[in-house]
């Protein structure tokens, strides 16, 4: 993380530039960073709560239940999807850049994180509208953010390095992300997972992370300390593997530039 601190000014400029470029052509500008997730959440809420309301999915109020997990989830998918292009779509600067190579990945991850931060008011709105307020365990919300940053750093570095050398990998990542959306309790609650599959799902670090986001409202959303510890362990493993993969592949990525 020393890299981020050392290059914080340049990074801040790059991220602001990217955000500006992203919203520049829209009439509503930055408002879209809130309107888009809000609209998408409404669609999902309408489908799964009103249209398919027969089966009990998750907890009540469902809109809050959904939005508190789906915003971090979108942060994750958008960040990882953007990482596939971090090196490949941006080779020219690598030839000249005297900044550490990782900066390209950190930059796209920070852009996705800024989008996440801008969409957080949705949760506050949902809390006020449904008049539901969290218990003391909400202090774990920032912890979840930190864990997710770690996870995304590892996965993002891995995905960016591999797809710089093998372009096909970006397609695979997209499919895997889509599959993960349904395999992770975003739309549903951890209680909806069949008991036999819970041990396997504990290996999915996002299960623990989303659990940490939700635990302030619904203490049943984590299965206790053991699966949490497994999730954190897997997160750490992902981070280490990602950093090591990048270290191994960095010379070859630079040769591609």
């Amino acid at each position: 993380m020393g890299i981020v601190w050392k290059n914080r000014q340049v990074l801040r400029m790059l991220v602001l530039r990217d955000l500006q470029g992203k919203y520049r052509n829209f009439r509503l500008g930055y408002l879209w960073s809130i309107l888009e997730p809000l609209g998408m959440t409404f669609v999902l809420w309408f489908v799964f709560s009103i249209l398919l309301g027969g089966r009990k999915l998750g907890e009540q109020p469902y809109f809050l239940f959904l939005s508190i997990a789906i915003l971090p989830w979108w942060w994750f998918t958008k960040g990882i999807a953007a990482s596939t292009r971090a090196f490949r779509g941006n080779m020219a600067p690598l030839k000249v850049s005297l900044l550490p190579t990782e900066i390209s990945v950190i930059r796209v991850l920070l852009v996705s994180m800024a989008d996440f931060a801008l969409s957080l008011p949705i949760i506050v709105i949902a809390m006020i509208v449904t008049w539901t307020f969290p218990g003391p365990l909400i202090v774990l919300f920032p912890v979840a953010i930190v864990v997710q940053v770690m996870l995304m750093y590892g996965v993002g570095l891995f995905v960016a390095s591999v797809s710089a050398l093998v372009p096909d990998f970006a397609r695979i990542v997209r499919i895997v992300l889509r599959a993960m959306f349904y395999l992770t309790p975003v739309l549903y609650s951890i209680a909806n997972i069949p008991v036999g599959a819970r041990d396997i799902s504990a290996l999915n670090p996002l299960v623990s992370i989303l659990g940490l986001y939700r635990i302030g409202f619904w203490p049943t959303e984590t299965e206790g300390a053991a699966p949490l510890a497994i999730g954190l362990g897997v997160t750490a493993a992902f981070t280490i593997v990602g950093v090591m993969t990048f270290r191994r592949l960095e010379p070859r990525i630079l040769k591609e530039a």
């Binding site: 340049v10 400029m13 790059l14 530039r17 470029g21 020219a92 600067p93 030839k95 000249v96 850049s97 005297l98 900044l99």
Partner: peptide
């Protein structure tokens, strides 16, 4: 190639200088 046509000259100066540290 490290310059971006979609940015202004001023923005390009800051970005390229940033790449050079």
């Amino acid at each position: 190639r490290c310059l971006t046509a979609a940015y202004t000259t001023r923005q390009n100066i800051y970005l390229t200088a940033g790449l050079l540290g």
